[in-house]
Nucleic acid binder design. Structure first.
Length: 212
DNA sequence: TTCGAGATCGGA
DNA sequence: CCGATCTCGAAT
């Protein structure tokens, strides 16, 4: 069981450029140019920041082109174009007319697939995220795909943007970070291909959208 | 603690 | 029409 005490949160040491310290190596395009299930699994424990604000990825889902639940399943359209583009880009779409959801495009250029980022453990710029999320508790800042885009300030204008360049940072787990145990389960909120266990979670994290 | 409905809009 | 969702209020 994790036992983070709210009062013990220390100030985040940041370098000059607003990019926080304590990050691992930035992930390159090659990381994303692999099977989407592998990418989705290995993103657990990595850092995701937007403008210096963000946290550690604790929940993802994989969607590939042969998957009826994937937006690319119906073929290329105006909305899902980024899915067919080069790996390491963002695919951002609007959900239920209200929320934005963010994916990391995976697999080689032209092959549609993406990992949906579903939850973060807030770590950098927590104050700013709380402001954007109406002063909610840390646990609720990024515990869902629509919540985390709101907390980071990611929107439709970021559709197609490279995750390998500012304002995005996606970095491997920092050296010395405890390795997270990854669990799998069925994906959330879909009605097709429900049985595929393509949801990946950091086991026991209190920051998931839902427990496994 | 769980359940159900409403909000809201671009794309097929 | 219908979502890869979130929130709030009511019931349990």
């Amino acid at each position: 069981m994790e036992r983070a005490s709210p009062g013990a949160s220390s100030a985040v040491a940041s370098t000059d450029g607003g990019v926080p310290a304590g990050l691992g190596e930035p992930l390159d395009e090659g990381f994303f140019a692999r099977p989407v299930q592998v990418v989705a699994r290995e993103l657990i424990g990595c850092a995701l920041l937007y403008g210096g604000v963000g946290g550690v990825i604790v929940e993802t889902e994989a969607y590939d082109r042969d998957d009826p639940a994937c937006h690319a399943y119906v073929g290329r359209t105006a909305r899902n174009g980024a899915l067919f583009g080069p790996p390491g880009r963002a695919y951002v779409y609007r959900s239920y007319g209200l929320h934005n959801c963010m994916n990391a495009v995976a697999e080689p250029d032209g092959r549609a697939a993406a990992a949906l980022i579903r939850a973060l453990e807030p770590r950098w710029g927590v104050e700013e995220m709380a402001r954007r999320r109406d002063g909610r508790a840390r646990r609720e800042l990024c515990s869902g795909p629509g919540k985390l885009t709101a907390a980071l300030g990611v929107d439709m204008a970021d559709d197609g943007a490279p995750l390998t360049a500012p304002p995005f940072v996606v970095a491997a787990p920092a050296p010395g970070d405890p390795e997270l145990e990854v669990g799998t389960g069925p994906r959330i909120g879909i009605n097709k291909a429900v049985e595929n266990p393509w949801r990946f979670c950091a086991v026991g994290s209190p920051y998931l959208s839902r427990p496994l």
